[in-house]
Every structure is written in C-alpha cells, then in structure tokens.
C-alpha cells in the first residue's frame, strides 16, 4: 500500500559540496519500505509544484544513532527542487508518498554484493548494506566514484560497513584518478561470476558503462535508474526508459512502477 503522509524534517545535515542527508520519521512507511524503493517528496508552500523522487538511503537501524521510525534521504542540490529542500530546517513540513517502486533483489547468502556508485548514486546503499548483512551475504565490495573527493558523501560509513572500498575521482582528489569502471574492471578480471552480483546506481553514462561490461559477459547486474517524473506511481508515464519488449521491439517501461531497479539486460539503451 502506498501512503501519502505529511511529516516534519528531523534533520537536514549538510555533508559538503551541496550533499545533504535528510531525516524524517514516519512509522508506517518505515515499516514497509525496502532498499532501492523511493519516495516522492513534496515541499508544501515552497512554490515547487511537483514532488521529487528520492531513493531511501536509511531505514530504521541503518544508521546506528537513528530512532526506530526514521528514514533518510541522501541528496545533492541539482535544481530548484533540491535547492529549496536544502534550505529546510528541523520541523519544516514535507509531504511524503511511499513506498514506491521495486527495490533491489538482495543477493543470495554465498553471493558477494558488488556496489557501484557514482556520486549521489551511493544513496540507496546504506539501507541495502544492512539488508545484505541480514540475508547472510558476504560483506559488500564497493566501487565509489565521483568528480572529486567532495562528492563522495558517507565515505566513512561505507569504509566501516563494506568488505572492500575502492574509490576513484575524475580529478584525482581521492582514490584513483579516473572513472570508477577502472578499478571495477581490474577486480572483475578472472573472478568467478557466480560468486558476486553487480549492483549499480549513478548517472546514466556510468550505468551505460556498467551495462556494457555486465551484459556481454553474462554477469548478474541490477541497475537503479532515475528520471524526471511527475507522479511516481505510474500514471503520468513520464519516467520511461527503453527496454527490450517481448516481441523484440523496444518498449517504454516506467521507472517508477516497473523500476527503479531493473536487470541490466532488460535495457535497450
């Protein structure tokens, strides 16, 4: 059941370079939400008309100090909506629609989750890290890339909770200089593909690159997509992505209700 609730901002913590961790509390949504699902968040009275989609970053228990009904969203100021959101203080009202979409499929107990994140694409991984641990997966291996060190939010958290953490930045200010696919390809080299599963979230060019690595090699790979969307629950049909249809032709699949997590081989980019 999708719920539409008005909540108050509990915290809206600046993490530097326009990255923020927003916390609010909503018991029923918190109880039903799964990693990889998302909310539509509205800012009443802000002059912003449409709600904005954000994947869930923290579920109850994800972050050690968060109370039992709290939810977190990790976001970066990109446009007017996130600009307004970043200015909201504790107590400000938000409208929250969720849980929306289909989350990640948690890999099996012997399968290592391999997270690939591009900048703010790291958002869904804290909640997923906890779910993988609960399912008995080996500790995740994370490949975290961004333009610069300032765009690697929650890096310390991932360092504490992942088995391996490989970073890459385009300007070389943290980790290896270059794209995140560099260290990823080296890690994959010669490794038995039945022992791991790729999971990627980030900008479209990065997702294309991961798809192009995974699909020809037959690697298991889930991609978490995003798009502009007006409603978030399937009716505006605004957030589609081209996919391979049953008849061999291209279909347009709604990211909001059929995603946001889709198997890489389904995409017809």
């Amino acid at each position: 059941m999708i719920l539409d609730k008005t909540v108050n901002v509990v915290a809206n913590e600046a993490l530097g370079n326009g990255n923020f961790l927003l916390t609010f509390a909503e018991e029923t949504i918190a109880g039903e939400m799964l990693p990889g699902q998302f909310f539509m968040v509205g800012m009443p009275g802000s002059g912003i008309l449409l709600r904005r989609p954000f994947s869930v970053c923290g579920l109850p228990g994800t972050f050690d100090d968060s109370p039992g009904d709290s939810l977190q969203v990790l976001y970066k100021v990109m446009g007017q909506g996130t600009q307004v959101l970043s200015g909201l203080g504790t107590g400000a009202a938000l409208t929250v629609l969720g849980p929306l979409g289909n989350g990640f499929t948690v890999p099996g107990p012997e399968v290592t989750p391999v997270f690939v994140a591009g900048g703010i694409g790291s958002a869904p991984y804290p909640a997923l890290t906890r779910a993988c641990a609960a399912a008995g997966c080996p500790d995740p291996v994370m490949f975290y890339g961004a333009r610069s060190a300032a765009d690697l939010p929650l890096l310390d958290w991932f360092d504490d909770h992942c088995g391996e953490l490989h970073t890459a930045t385009e300007d070389g200010s943290a980790g290896e200089q270059g794209l995140v696919t560099g260290p990823l390809l080296r890690w994959l080299e010669g490794r038995d593909p039945t022992t791991y599963e790729l999971i990627a979230c980030g900008p479209d060019p990065m997702l294309h690159a991961i798809r192009n690595i995974a699909v020809p090699a037959g690697l298991r790979c889930q991609l978490s997509l995003e798009a502009h969307m007006a409603c978030g629950f399937g009716v505006c049909i605004g957030c589609v992505v081209p996919t391979h249809g049953e008849d061999g032709a291209v279909d347009y699949t709604r990211i909001c209700v059929d995603g946001p997590v889709l198997p890489a081989e389904k995409l017809a980019w």
């Binding site: 008309l49 502009h228 049909i237 347009y252």
Partner: peptide, 16 residues
C-alpha cells in the same frame, strides 16, 4: 501505442 522517447516531463514555473 508506445508513446514518445524520454525525456517526457519537466517542471516549469507553476506547471509542467
């Protein structure tokens, strides 16, 4: 009908 390729929606002042 399958519709148009994305992107399909964008918010504009007081509308979309």
């Amino acid at each position: 009908r399958k519709g148009n390729p994305p992107a399909r929606v964008v918010e504009t002042p007081a509308g979309m």
